[in-house]
Computed example of a mutant assay.
Amino acid sequence: MQRISARNARFQVWQSYLTNRNKRQRAGEFLVQGVRPISVAVDNGWPVRTVIHDAARPLSRWAQELYQRLPGVERVAMEPELLAELGEKDAEVVAVVEMPPDDLDRIEVGPDFLGVVFDRPTGPGNIGSIIRSADAFGADGVIVTGHAADVYDPKAVRATTGSLFALPAVRVPSHREVIEWVRRSAVPIVVVGTDEHGDVDVFDFDLTQPVLLLVGNETNGLSAAWKEAADALVRIPITGSASSLNAANAATAVLYEVARQRQPSSR
């Protein structure tokens, strides 16, 4: 077991993952903190390359069980002040987890398919929140398109509270790859965009069919290309002085409506 008590080269590499997307991508790994996210990652078979724990205190029962579940994993004991720079204050464990490939075929398409596209998001926290909501309401996967914040940004990973590891989240360069994937699907998929100027209220649209839900950029909404590609544009009726909803809140509202419509009592 390696022990790290200074800001050596290895520590600096891990520290760079907190802010440098390119370094995370080149290494093919990212940092995960927290009991639930790490546990969900292990439960779902995500490859854990390294487990870093606090060298100054005995391992908790959970940490001992984690090492038992990962018998071949690299173990690193780190001084607590250094570990706090990689995770939250008083963090016991930080895991270095391998990124999966950005392959749309990781997302399974069946007769009850529900997928979510987040188009060019700027806020990693919003990405994480949408992944969490997608998981909560039974989606099969999340796709992030275009020039966007990173799914593996620490703020995004934290905001998912572990849901990142429970359903596929795939990054693609543009809408084109997604449209091609939809076209070659054996299951017909209805592409439904969310837009404040949509043609129909979300409650009046049939969301029981296989659906790919489109959520636009926080500031500018859906791109013109996505609006053109959509089979329908739905709106969320709102009242009061608010002119619109936050992207993550809007996505959650529509995902709830999908889940409501798909309940047997609603059919």
Rank of each mutant, 00 (worst) to 15 (best):
150 D>S: 15
148 A>K: 03
88 E>I: 05
58 P>H: 03
67 Y>W: 06
66 L>R: 01
77 A>P: 09
110 G>A: 12
96 V>Y: 01
78 M>F: 09
141 G>V: 02
147 H>N: 11
92 E>M: 05
131 I>H: 01
104 L>E: 06
109 V>K: 02
153 D>N: 15
106 R>I: 04
167 L>P: 00
123 G>R: 13
67 Y>Q: 03
92 E>N: 03
161 T>A: 15
64 Q>D: 11
99 M>C: 08
47 P>G: 05
50 T>G: 02
73 V>H: 08
128 G>S: 08
72 G>F: 11
47 P>D: 14
131 I>S: 00
122 T>A: 15
99 M>A: 14
161 T>K: 05
52 I>W: 12
117 V>F: 05
54 D>Q: 02
98 E>M: 10
139 A>S: 15
86 L>F: 04
137 F>E: 10
119 D>K: 08
99 M>N: 05
168 P>C: 08
124 P>E: 03
169 A>F: 04
57 R>V: 14
119 D>E: 15
86 L>D: 13
60 S>I: 10
50 T>S: 13
146 G>V: 13
123 G>P: 00
92 E>W: 10
67 Y>I: 04
168 P>Y: 11
166 A>N: 12
57 R>S: 14
102 D>C: 06
52 I>G: 00
49 R>T: 11
81 E>R: 13
71 P>Q: 11
154 P>Y: 05
161 T>I: 07
99 M>E: 06
92 E>G: 09
46 W>M: 10
162 G>L: 03
54 D>R: 14
79 E>M: 07
70 L>N: 08
139 A>T: 04
61 R>T: 14
86 L>I: 07
160 T>M: 04
137 F>N: 06
82 L>C: 11
155 K>Q: 11
118 F>S: 04
156 A>D: 00
84 A>F: 10
155 K>P: 05
57 R>H: 14
49 R>E: 15
